[in-house]
Design a protein around this nucleic acid. Structure first.
Length: 957
RNA sequence: GCGGGAGUCGCCCAGCCUGGUCAAAGGCGUAGGGCUUAGGACCCUAUAUCUCAGGAUUUCGUGGGUUCGAAUCCCACCUCCCGCACCA
């Protein structure tokens, strides 16, 4: 049978839609609110996106079957800049992006034409993604859908950002960004040639030296080295500029003058000054020392200010430049000696000298100096200690002392930040070279605030985090998080209500929007309009602040409507589970928590976060350049939604990267097909009296229900699915073996019972085909509306059923093993079971010692046996004891416990009735069972005495 | 540098949280067999080493430790991967 997946899927999707199964309103049942981070629609979703949504959908469906009223909504995040960049590139007709749209995403030509308008791009992919979600069978309440640029949402964001500001969470300050001087815009990765992220090094500083009315600024990564400064370096072949900077006059290179224009300073070049006029002058150090200015060829005018400070004891370049001058008998230089200020294990007093000599550096243009510098800087940073030359910073480790010295210099006005592009040159797509710009008046969320962090930590401590080992990571993120810009000057989004030049930044407008899902359906159906959504309205509904009268008068809504909406919010909130990808841990998910604790009271804080890894294609990362992106909708058409859902889930546990490959899809298709076939065959016939193997398989079913339920509760979906589809299969095949051996025809009812439980448990994973199976089984209604199977210990004596069946299995295995080793062609098989009461007594005693006492040491066991008069005879059978310990050692804990709890059962009776049929089938000969003490025993080789409880002796002839 | 994660029997990969059912699941590959006109698909068996009575030995990156018992817990080391911000 070949399944037409799409046909089945459409059939059930229509039924779900018709019966409005997933449209959720408050009712008397307990609720679960499951959310996923909404998508940014600038491309169709691929299989990787499908993973997060699929996991959330399984979660939602699982809870629904467990009797919860589940809300699972979806929105679309239009806020941000990527579509702006895309539109520009499309307008210019860039081949790369157009090819991508045509060949990978198969966007119709007439739609591409509209893409010069950013919103059209978002609209197109919005619909594309939504269709994919429907085709995947996600159980979403679409009545609540919104995009982040609709007026209602913008009202909500205005309220959110105003509330944050009034709570003191937003501050203003300056911040460096990558900047295109031509476009007058900040640049991000999407805006640069080759998609390079402009990396800003904020650990670079500018230190000022004085000479009369002039300031000589130098840049450095190591402010602590001012204590070891001996001189400044300038390039001897450069004409420097006199520049007024705010109310000071600086001597800097021309290139530097251009850079600092973007630092929010008043910069004006007022004249030239050739290096010859500077060399030989003395500048004043922070401590009043006079420092000579000397020439050095290695100084590049384009780096920093074009002036460099010299620390020859610790900087290999400075050391070498000084040596070069000395070699030329430079008069001033000859008087200069390095000043060591850092002590580092493995280096002597003058580390720069040592490393230059070690690497045999020849002069200051030697390439080996880069290597030397890198090595020494790192070593001194991690292991170095400042010495007594550093005054109050004596004995500090370099890595901590540096920050203190920096702060100290800053206080004395001799140090400023001088951020630079670490990976320069970076070019904007317009062709201009990017610079660092310091934006003043930037708005920040003050995530550095300790009190705020503490609230977030509380929230993380109390919430459920899956997988749980992410908790430490979240705490670390909170630790290093500091002020974060929450507004930007371009892109789609909502304007800052108090400063209309700025737009709320996209990550900051997506932190508490889950609350808006409880409101959006009223906006969507016209019950309220965006104009109704006033501050007082939100305050009353979301914060329980003010009163209904005030909310009603400002919003012009009736009290009834307001109270209905408030009830809805209070019913669904807090979020019970937030699903998201691994990449959002350090930003979105952390901000999600931070903003919730900043705005809402504790009972509305999120309850759970579930994080999943990404999806690989045949072991490789998916990327456009690799051409291995499969759009989700294409995959659905080709292979069916359910096989894709299962392939994604079954290939990895939560946090692992899932590997998606066609083989697993085909494997799953086959599996589902055969299950469907089986379901159409099975009849719900009455179950006749249960035989041993029936009791066994039904107990196994019960324990499977238990483990699957537990797996799903912990979101270990792979484990759960594996249990349903594969692990349980081996039990079933043993059962079938047994049934066939006995030639039974009366098991349809039992298999029916088993499969209806399996199908029910499968349905959250593969909802469409499960409905189909359910229908084939002849069940009423839909499986999505059925109850999750309950793990019950019902009437079956599981302990006896399971241990007797395991005895049978072990015996068969043993026989097979002997046959394999001996290569005998069996004519006759004889089994001897234990009937010696002393052996049994000792066996039980050992079992107790091992299970309860946790002991399996021969000596200890023997001592305990002898101590008990009942089993004192044990000392006569050490061999036996040893073997029993071994037998038990290899038994599962479950079986051991069962054995201990239940009485010994009659092995002979059980084996003689059950072993004959299966033995005959497996080995093709008759199997006879004797008890050790039987008078008519056939035991030519004296094997019978080796029989032990649960370990019969075997004779094969 | 800071932080997170991984190293398992030819390959991929499960097991680790909660130590004993672990010589270790599943898939691929390989070998043999079945079914086929043939191919494919499918099914069965085997796949660390030794062993002609159900057994033994050495294994889970390396080296230590805890324990009656370690792939699993602890410590150290080696190797590899990922993130570090104004970007969704």
């Amino acid at each position: 049978m070949t399944i037409n997946w799409n046909e089945i899927e459409t059939k059930w999707q229509n039924k779900w839609a018709e019966s409005k199964d997933f449209e959720t309103n408050p009712n008397e049942k307990p609720k679960k609110f499951i959310t996923v981070a909404y998508p940014y629609p600038n491309s169709p979703q691929h299989i990787g996106h499908g993973r997060t949504y699929t996991l959330a959908d399984v979660h939602a469906r699982f809870y629904r079957m467990q009797g919860y009223n589940v809300l699972f909504p979806m929105g679309f995040h239009y806020t941000g800049t990527p579509v702006l960049g895309m539109a520009k590139r499309i307008e210019k007709g860039e081949k790369e992006i157009l090819d991508g749209l045509r060949n990978i995403y198969h966007v119709p030509e007439e739609d591409i034409k509209t893409f010069v308008e950013p919103i059209k791009i978002a609209d197109y992919f919005h619909e594309e993604i939504k269709s994919g979600m429907i085709e995947m069978g996600y159980s979403i309440d679409w009545r609540r859908e919104f995009t982040t640029i609709v007026p209602g949402y913008q009202k909500f964001i205005e309220w959110q950002i105003t509330t944050l500001k009034e709570n003191g969470r937003i501050i203003q300050g300056s911040h460096p960004v990558g900047w295109c001087p031509k476009d007058q815009n900040p640049v991000s990765q999407h805006d640069t040639m080759g998609d390079v992220e402009p990396k800003i090094d904020e650990k670079n500083f500018l230190i000022k030296f004085k000479l009369g009315e002039f300031i000589f600024p130098v840049t450095t990564l190591r402010p602590e080295t001012i204590f070891g400064i001996t001189n400044l370096w300038v390039n001897p072949n450069t004409i420097y500029k006199k520049v007024t900077v705010d109310n000071e006059t600086w001597i800097i290179s021309e290139q530097c003058a251009h850079k600092i224009e973007f630092f929010e300073k008043h910069v004006k070049v007022i004249g030239d000054i050739p290096s010859s006029e500077i060399i030989g002058q003395y500048v004043i150090n922070h401590d009043g020392r006079e420092i000579p200015v000397l020439p050095a060829d290695f100084v590049e005018p384009g780096m920093g200010t074009g002036l460099v400070m010299s620390v020859p004891a610790h900087a290999p370049k400075d050391y070498q430049a000084l040596m070069d001058l000395k070699a030329g008998n430079h008069e001033l230089a000859s008087k200069i000696e390095p000043i060591p200020i850092i002590v580092t294990e493995g280096y002597d007093e003058y580390p720069a000298k040592q490393i230059c000599e070690k690497l045999r550096v020849s002069n200051q243009t030697d390439e080996k100096l880069e290597e030397a510098t890198k090595e020494l800087y790192l070593k001194e940073f991690t292991d170095g200690k400042l010495n007594e030359k550093c005054g109050e910073f004596n004995n500090e480790n370099v890595q901590f002392g540096r920050d203190k010295i920096r702060a100290w210099l800053q206080e004395n006005n001799t140090l400023e930040k001088f951020p630079v592009l670490e990976n320069s040159p970076v070019h904007c797509r317009c062709g201009a070279e990017c610079v660092v710009k310091i934006l003043n008046n930037q708005w920040f969320l003050n995530y550095g605030d300790e009190e705020w962090k503490e609230l977030a930590r509380n929230c993380f401590n109390e919430m459920n985090i899956l997988p749980s080992n992410l908790r430490t990571e979240f705490k670390k993120v909170i630790e290093w998080l500091h002020e974060r810009a929450c507004a930007r000057q371009q892109g789609l989004g909502t304007k800052l209500p108090w400063d209309k030049d700025w737009i709320v930044e996209s990550l900051s407008d997506s932190v508490i929007y889950t609350a808006y899902y409880t409101i959006s359906r009223f906006v969507n159906d016209g019950t309220v309009t965006p104009e109704n959504l006033t501050r007082e309205f939100f305050d009353y509904i979301l914060l329980d602040k003010g009163d209904v009268k005030l909310a009603a008068s400002t919003s012009k809504l009736s009290k009834d409507i307001i109270n209905t909406m408030k009830k809805e919010f209070q019913y669904f909130y807090p979020v019970d589970s937030r699903h998201s990808g691994r990449d959002l841990v350090q930003n979105h998910l952390s901000f999600f928590v931070l903003n919730h604790v900043a705005i809402f009271e504790k009972k509305l804080w999120p309850q759970e976060i579930v994080v999943n890894g990404s999806v690989m294609m045949d072991g490789a990362k998916m990327s456009k350049s690799m051409g291995n992106i499969i759009p989700l909708r294409t995959a659905i058409k080709d292979h069916g939604a359910d096989p894709i859902r299962l392939a994604i889930i079954s290939s990895a546990e939560l946090l692992q990267d899932a590997d998606f490959n066609m083989e697993s899809v085909y494997g799953i298709q086959n599996k589902l097909e055969s299950l469907l076939e089986e379901c159409s065959r099975l009849k719900n016939e009455p179950i006749s009296e249960l035989q041993a193997e029936d009791r066994w398989i039904l107990s196994k079913l019960q324990s499977m229900i238990g483990t699957v339920t537990e797996s799903l509760e912990k979101m270990r979906l792979r484990e759960g699915l594996h249990e349903i589809l594969f692990s349980f299969e081996s039990d079933l095949s043993w059962y079938n073996k047994r049934v066939e051996a006995k030639g039974r025809k009366d098991v349809s009812g039992i298999l029916y019972k088993i499969n209806s439980a399996r199908v029910a448990m499968l349905s959250p994973f593969a909802p469409h085909i499960s409905e189909e199976m359910w229908e084939k089984l002849g069940e009423d209604d839909q499986v999505s509306k059925s109850a999750w199977p309950v793990h019950s210990k019902d009437e079956i004596d599981a302990a006896t059923a399971i241990q007797s069946e395991s005895l049978l299995k072990n015996t068969i295995d043993d026989i097979a093993n002997i046959l394999k080793v001996t290569k005998i062609d069996p004519k006759k098989i004889v089994i001897y079971v234990n009937s010696n009461s002393m052996k049994s007594k000792v066996y039980r005693k050992i079992l107790g010692i091992m299970v309860v006492g946790g002991q399996n040491n021969m000596g200890v066991v023997m001592k305990e046996l002898i101590a008990d008069p009942e089993t004192i005879e044990a000392k006569k059978m050490p061999d036996y004891i040893q073997k029993v310990i071994k037998d038990l050692h290899s038994e599962s804990e479950e079986i051991k416990n069962m054995k201990l709890e239940s009485d010994l059962f009659d092995e002979k009776e059980f084996l003689s009735s059950e072993l004959a049929s299966i033995g005959k089938k497996e080995f093709g000969v008759d199997v006879t069972v004797y008890s050790e003490s039987d008078s008519d025993i056939y035991d030519p080789k004296g094997k019978a005495r080796h029989a032990r409880p649960f370990k019969p002796a075997i004779l094969i002839e």
